[in-house]
Amino acid sequence: MSRMRFVFSGSGGQGVITAAIILSEAAVLYENLIAVQAQAYGPEARGGATRSDVIIDDQEILFPKVTQPNFLVCLTQEAYHKFSPIVRPGGTILSDTRFVTIHKKSDARQIQLPLYETIMNEIKKPIVLNICMLGAVVALTQIVQQDSILNVLERRIPHEFIEMNKKALDLGIAMGESQRM
């Protein structure tokens, strides 16, 4: 496989770091892939823009930071402004229609999905936005099986919240599928 470099960005509390960890855990624990995950700490991690890097490959990963992502997720306008310039030419930027207005010019493929709106209509709980986003990422990249993500969710999430998370994941997958090229 060719190395996938993700940057997940948004604001504190949106769960982008958790989503990054779930994706990498799915790859490592259930697909025998190699992954590293890193995140910004300190002033950068308070309020403002949060960022987490994930690299997934079937080869050893030495340098764990992402300088140019192939796949960038932005859940806030601030994150989009800050990180959209670093995406690799030919890469993908996934953003939420409600939180982000996109620039026209970019060498990347820009995908906007109504993640937040869908979650609010169907589940009415903003807390699962990150899982819905993850569904879209998995559908778009095919980097891991949906089942692997489900396995991780089942291990990490208290029983009573599993259904809600599964639903969010499915909604995300459906939206992602609709945009696959």
């Binding site: 490592v28 190699i34 992954a35 590293v36 995950q37 890193a38 995140q39 700490y41 764990p64």
Partner: peptide, 10 residues
């Protein structure tokens, strides 16, 4: 160091 301490890896 901070990189090894905070990074997640298998």
């Amino acid at each position: 160091d901070e990189v090894i301490g905070h990074m997640r890896e298998r």
